[in-house]
Amino acid sequence: MRVAVTGGKGGVGKSTVAYNLGRALSAVVVDADLGMADLPTARGPDLHDVLAGRADPVEAVREDGPVALLPCGRTLRGARAADPRRLVETVEAVESVYGRVVVDCPAGLGSDVGLALLAAESCVVVTTPSSVALADAIRARVLARELDAGLAGVALNRVGADPPVSRVERLFGAPVTTIPASETVATATTTGVPVASLSTECAEPFEELATAVYSSRRS
C-alpha cells in the first residue's frame, strides 16, 4: 500500500493528516517535501541522503518514534544534492519491507508533487472549507488522476459547525472525513506527536480516514 497525501494549497494541514494517517495505518510516513520538510526529524540519514545515493531507503527509516518515519533533511545543500527522480524507487523499497507507506507531498502542483503522486497507488486529498483551498484541492485531484493515483478519500480539515460535507462529496465524488478545528490537534502537531498520544477522541477522524483508505482498496 502506497498512499500519497496531497492538497495543492499550503497551510491546509496536509502534513498533520499524513503523520496521523500513518499512525492509524501503522505505516511508514515518507516526508517528500524536499524543500520545506515539516515532519519530525532526528539524527541520521534522511531522504536527502537517500535521493543523493548516500543512504539505503530502509536504513533511513526511523522506528524509534511514535510513528515510523523516513524524514527529510532541512538544508538547502541537501536538497540540491538530492535527485527527486529516485523518489519512486525509494517509496517502493520501503513498501517492500514495511508493507504500508504514506507519502507526505509538497504543497503546490509542481513536478515534485507529481513525482510523489507517481510513487503512490492512491491519494488522500486534504482541504479546508475555504473556496481557495477547495479550488487548489480539485487541481491536485486532477493531477493525481493523470498520474493514476486513485482517490481514496478527502480530508476536510479544520471544520467548524455545519461543514459543507455534501458539497465537497459532490465536487470530488469520494467519501469525506471531517477533522474539526482543535487545540489538541494543534498541540500534537507542534510537539511532533500523533494526536492519539493526547486524545483518543480527537484521533477518531484519522482512524475514520484510515478506514476509508482500506475500503477504497477493496472497491
Rank of each mutant, 00 (worst) to 15 (best):
L117F: 12
R139Q: 15
P175G: 06
R167H: 09
A181H: 12
R139I: 00
G110E: 12
G35T: 02
Y19V: 00
A68R: 15
S216H: 11
A60D: 08
S166K: 14
V126W: 11
E89D: 14
N20P: 02
A181K: 08
A120Y: 12
V126Q: 06
V50C: 09
A181D: 15
T200H: 13
D46H: 09
V142D: 15
L147N: 03
S166D: 15
R62W: 02
L209Q: 04
V165K: 00
D31F: 08
V195W: 06
R218V: 14
G35R: 03
L156F: 11
A82W: 07
A37S: 14
V132M: 14
A68Q: 11
A174E: 07
A196N: 02
D38C: 14
A144W: 09
V3A: 12
G22Q: 02
G110M: 08
D33Y: 07
V50W: 10
E95R: 05
K9R: 15
A55G: 04
G10I: 14
G173N: 11
Y214K: 10
L156Q: 04
A82F: 06
T184P: 05
T41D: 13
E183Q: 13
A144Q: 08
T189K: 01
D83Q: 13
G44A: 09
V213L: 12
G35W: 01
H48W: 13
T6K: 05
A68M: 13
N20G: 05
S182E: 09
R217N: 04
A37F: 07
A186H: 06
A52F: 10
D64W: 05
P163M: 05
G13P: 02
S219P: 01
V185H: 04
D162W: 03
A60C: 05
A18Q: 05
A42E: 14
A174P: 01
A137P: 08
T189R: 06
V97H: 10
T191E: 15
V101Y: 03
V185P: 05
E207N: 04
P163Y: 08
C202N: 09
A155H: 09
V165P: 01
V91M: 06
T75F: 09
L34Q: 10
A81V: 03
Y98K: 03
L69T: 01
T184I: 15
L70P: 00
R170H: 08
A79W: 04
A212R: 14
R62L: 11
L51N: 03
T211M: 11
D148I: 00
L147C: 03
C72T: 11
T187P: 00
E183A: 15
E201T: 13
T200Y: 10
L151Y: 10
M36K: 11
A149Y: 03
R62T: 03
S131I: 01
V154M: 06
V29F: 04
